[in-house]
Write a protein that binds this DNA or RNA. Structure first.
Lengths: 110, 110
DNA sequence: CGGCATCCACAATGATACTG
DNA sequence: CAGTATCATTGTGGATGCCG
């Protein structure tokens, strides 16, 4: 009768994809490969320092791949790995919820 | 040809359900109404201070309802609101991803 | 039991400037 | 362009005590 809840896996997941910027970064990469600067612009308020360290963490956990191309100046492309793509439904779901939430807020003001 | 990505709604959603503890708290409440102490035990490492402030924030955003029952000592029950329940699929999805992720890590060690 | 208040410590994040 | 270095600010965590 008692609903057994296992919170631990949620905590595990958040260790990888938690934090302030990982979802936005991953969501931005749902749109296909992006350069460092594209990510900065997509996300808007993130600083280069945070973006850099978050990308490093995501790369370390196998969710994102980094490819440096030796042009002048340098070009670097970031992309979701196959494993990272397993998060796409989740990311789109969050985005959809966010859109709906904003709509709800606007309605509540009128 | 260019995939237009709107990251902003993701940021909006994370303002409400982001942070270190909100997903675990909400996920724990997927199992039905819980008392303050039950939440503390479910989540494990959270302190009363953090739990209290996070619950207040969630209540403020209409995701969680609080009901105090005048027993001695006091009983307080927290529950997902109807609006909070719209997050259930998302929460279960994250949990499932976390379980799968742990499995992947274990496999990679063997 | 279910909190809130206070104080302290430290990690995460941010602003700005600078470099290969 | 794609970051790194440095410094300042904020967020989060812990301990303790108090109260309805």
């Amino acid at each position: 009768m008692k609903n057994k809840i296992q919170v631990q896996p949620v905590m595990d997941a958040l260790e990888i994809i938690g934090g302030k910027w990982k979802f936005p970064i991953l969501y931005s990469l749902c749109g296909g490969k992006k350069r460092f600067k594209d990510l900065l612009e997509d996300i808007g308020k993130i600083t280069p320092k945070m973006l850099s360290s978050e990308l490093k963490s995501l790369e370390c956990n196998g969710l994102v791949s980094r490819k440096a191309i030796a042009t002048v100046p340098v070009t670097v492309e970031y992309e979701l790995t196959e494993y990272g793509e397993t998060l796409e439904p989740l990311l789109r779901h969050i985005q959809a919820w966010g859109i709906n939430h904003r709509k709800k807020i606007i309605d509540s003001i009128k």
